[in-house]
Simulated assay, not measured.
Amino acid sequence: MDNGNNERIVGYFIEEAKEHLETIEKGILDLSSAVNDEESINELFRAAHSIKGGAAMLNFNSISKTAHRLEDAFKILRDDPIQTDQTLESLFLKAYDILQDLLERLQGPLGLSDDEGEQIMETAEPHFVELLNYIQQLADGEIPVPSVTSASVRASSPSLTAIPSDEVVSQVRQVLQQMLVIFKQDATPSNRQQLQTICDKLGQIAPTENGWQNLIKCAKQAIANPKHSYRLLAPVVIKEVKLAGDCLEVGKGSEIAPSQGLEQLAYSKLPQVLISVDPSIAAETISKIFNREQISKLVNLLQATH
Rank of each mutant, 00 (worst) to 15 (best):
S156G: 14
A151S: 13
F13Q: 00
K52C: 03
E25K: 14
D72N: 13
N3E: 15
E104A: 08
K52I: 02
K26S: 12
D37M: 02
Q213P: 06
I28S: 06
C199P: 05
N59E: 15
S156V: 12
A219H: 04
L248E: 01
Q86M: 11
F60L: 04
N210A: 09
I63K: 00
Q136K: 06
S159M: 08
T197P: 05
D166F: 09
D200I: 10
I24L: 11
R78K: 11
I143V: 10
S287Q: 13
V250T: 11
I120D: 01
H49D: 08
A234V: 05
P109S: 14
E16K: 04
V241M: 02
I41K: 02
Y134F: 10
V237M: 06
L132S: 08
L274T: 10
L88I: 01
L180K: 01
K75P: 07
S259G: 11
R105A: 09
T161W: 06
Q185S: 12
A206V: 02
G245W: 01
T149F: 12
T123L: 14
I216W: 01
L21D: 00
D114R: 07
M57A: 12
S190M: 11
T84I: 03
E116W: 11
I63E: 08
N291I: 09
K184S: 10
A283D: 11
N214V: 07
I295L: 14
F92R: 00
D166W: 11
N191F: 00
K217Y: 10
N5T: 15
N6I: 15
H127D: 12
K52L: 00
L180T: 04
V299D: 04
Y134D: 00
T123P: 05
F74A: 07
N6F: 09
S50M: 05
S152R: 14
P226Q: 08
S159W: 00
A151P: 05
R69N: 10
I275N: 13
F13T: 00
A162E: 15
K18I: 02
D85M: 05
L132D: 01
A224E: 08
I256M: 04
K184G: 01
E255M: 10
E293F: 12
E209R: 03
I14Y: 03
M1I: 14
I198T: 03
A47T: 07
L270S: 12
Q264H: 13
N225W: 01
E15K: 09
T305M: 15
A234S: 12
V169H: 06
G251N: 06
L298G: 13
T66E: 04
P279Y: 04
I205F: 03
F60Y: 15
A17M: 04
Q213G: 05
W212E: 08
L44C: 07
Q196W: 02
E22A: 12
L44S: 01
E22H: 08
Q221D: 09
I286K: 07
D79S: 11
S113C: 07
Q100F: 10
S113K: 09
H49P: 12
C218G: 01
L243S: 11
P258Q: 06
L265M: 10
G245P: 09
V237Q: 00
S157H: 11
G11L: 09
T123V: 15
S165F: 01
N42C: 04
G203Y: 06
S62A: 15
R46T: 02
I135N: 01
L262I: 04
I286C: 03
K227C: 12
I182P: 10
I275C: 11
V299Y: 06
I24R: 00
D200A: 14
C199G: 06
I289E: 02
